[in-house]
């Protein structure tokens, strides 16, 4: 009796696991199959814009919108793939020792608006995928600009147990209900209506995937003076034990 039940349960688990695998594979396949038609749409528009010197402004603008929409769609595909890869445990990170201050400064340099930066004077080295993390900080800056307030800050806090990057704005913030849904795919808060044409609805899920792949976490908090804080916490990798070598000098 017990044996029969156990085997039934095992079968059920296997079926569920297979379903999950299929779902992830499907997402990767869809993303991949979309790239060729997108390449054609983008390429046709791009080549015509480059070679058609006599295009009227209307035609030229129309082609540019086609090209830009194809790019935007491709960005969504990229974001979906990042999330799908993370969920399938296949998001590869290219981790190297990097000063987090540099990551923050680089992200801010790519961001067109003013951003206040608060970083410690000392280097904050971390074993991270620089490109992915920079992408995350930039995505948070863009979210702050799109949905938040005009004053945007990035704060780096190098604690003993973790390194914490906070991106905050002085906008309307998010309600508790919105905070709990903000990491869902394609969720948009109430203040996003009508102005989200360039977003993918995948900003926070992508940031979450990248940060969690670094064994870190993402939290949304209210800023005391109003506005939203997005807090990325990267735990410090357990330090290699310090041992004394024969000469009594300390080496890692």
């Amino acid at each position: 009796m017990v044996a029969a039940r156990t085997s039934e349960l095992q079968q059920l688990i296997r079926r569920l696991e297979r379903g999950e695998e299929n779902r992830k594979q499907l997402m990767a396949d869809i993303s991949h199959e979309l790239r060729t038609p997108l390449a054609i749409i983008l390429g046709e528009a791009d080549v015509t814009l480059r070679t058609g010197g006599t295009l009227g402004d209307d035609v030229s603008d129309s082609l540019a919108r086609i090209r830009d929409s194809a790019k935007h769609t491709n960005q969504i595909v990229d974001d979906m793939l990042t999330v799908a890869r993370y969920e399938a445990g296949q998001l590869r990170l290219d981790r190297k020792q990097t000063d987090l201050r540099k990551v923050i400064h680089d992200a801010v340099a790519m961001f067109p608006g003013p951003v206040q930066i608060a970083c410690p004077d000392a280097p904050a080295p971390a074993l991270i995928d620089e490109v992915r993390l920079r992408q995350s900080v930039l995505a948070l800056l863009q979210n702050a600009r799109r949905y938040g307030g005009p004053t945007i800050s990035v704060i780096l806090d190098d604690r003993t147990d973790a390194q914490v990057i906070t991106v905050e704005d002085d906008g309307p913030g998010l309600s508790a209900a919105e905070k709990s849904q903000a990491f869902d795919r394609f969720f948009r808060g109430s203040n996003a209506s009508g102005q989200g044409s360039e977003g993918s609805g995948l900003g926070l899920p992508v940031v979450k995937s990248i940060v969690e792949a670094h064994a870190g976490s993402v939290a949304l908090q209210d800023r005391a003076e109003g506005g939203l804080q997005v807090v990325l916490t990267l735990p410090k990798v357990p330090r290699v034990k310090i041992v004394a070598d024969i000469d009594g000098r300390k080496t890692a």
Binding site: R35, A39, I41, L42, D46, V47, R50, N74, R85, R92
Partner: peptide
């Protein structure tokens, strides 16, 4: 290629390609 995972890129360069451009790409 429409396959753009980093492993694909490394693999491509390993078999003797000189460069790698994922689709879709900017024509310029």
């Amino acid at each position: 290629t429409a396959l753009d995972s980093p492993e694909e890129k490394v693999e491509g360069l390993k078999v003797g390609a000189d460069d790698y451009l994922p689709k879709p790409f900017d024509f310029d």
